[in-house]
Amino acid sequence: MGIKGPTTEQLLDMYAAMWRIRLFEEQAEYQSGQGKVLGALHTYIGQEAVGVGICAHLTDADYITSTHRGHGHCISKGADVRRMMAELFGRVTGYCKGKGGSMHIADFAVGMLGANGIVAGGFGLATGAGLAAQVRESGQVAVCFFGDGAVNRGPFHENINLGAVWRLPVVYVCENNQYAQWTPQEEITLVTDVASMSSAYGIPGAQVDGMDVLSVYQAAGEAVDRARRGEGPTLLECKTYRFHGHNFGDPQQYRTKEEISDWSGQHDPIQGLGDHLQREGVLTAEEAESIRNSVQEEIAGAVRFADESPYPGPEELTRDVFSTPVA
């Protein structure tokens, strides 16, 4: 309660940001099919409302940690899509100079502490970032994004317990997309409502419709405010769904086509916000189209930028490894 906004400007920004994620991911999949993306690709399509609704409450000074499905978090936090695409293409202009790929994009300038190929790998980083903020009394907040699979790993438990007992300014955000890679959630835990686990840690838990950016925005606002006031962490569960496979090329034999089309047809978060804005008279159909087109241009520019950038030279092999370069 008491969460103001979002303002019209914020709503339009969120709408554009969700399109930015969607179109970036669609383009990344297309380019991967063309053989241009080096390494694995995990897209955020369907989950856009989570990253966008939460990061709307954060500034560049606040921290987030991400997952293997990290593009949406990067874009929500304000990372540059050109350097992201270049990283996917393995080019020297990418965030990791083309040496990291999709699962290692980080942008410290906007508080994005990194995607992470290790399931549950972000917990320690976010909790540590929260501790640093508490020690420095900086008022910063750290948000830890993780999936339902990560809930069953040790770092989830250890870090939320520690964050709770030290009242750290961290928001633990479970993007419950119901599948840990190919495994349905109910096969690997008896407690499918992750938010209810908060009672085991003595912190508040909240569950929201992760396909509805306004619900996410509201719940995230309360959790972020609470963290900023020094009242400790919240476990926020966003029920969501990834419209595409675990990774690009996943045959998805573990779920039905009907289930997928039901979610993408009935619960598309971008369409949901677009319809809402048009109903409220904030946006006309033409304006919506124009936002989408402008983002599409931006993504096309990112692909051009990546295409035109060189690959890292052999001299990059030994750079960024030791503080004193190897002779």
Binding site: N161, A164, V165, R167, T189, L190, V191, S196, M197, S199, A200, Y201, G202, I203, G232
Partner: peptide, 14 residues
């Protein structure tokens, strides 16, 4: 821990 006791942790595992 910030939880009110240890037994309550069972609820997180059903």
């Amino acid at each position: 821990t910030a939880s009110r006791n240890m037994a309550v942790k069972a609820t997180a595992y059903g």
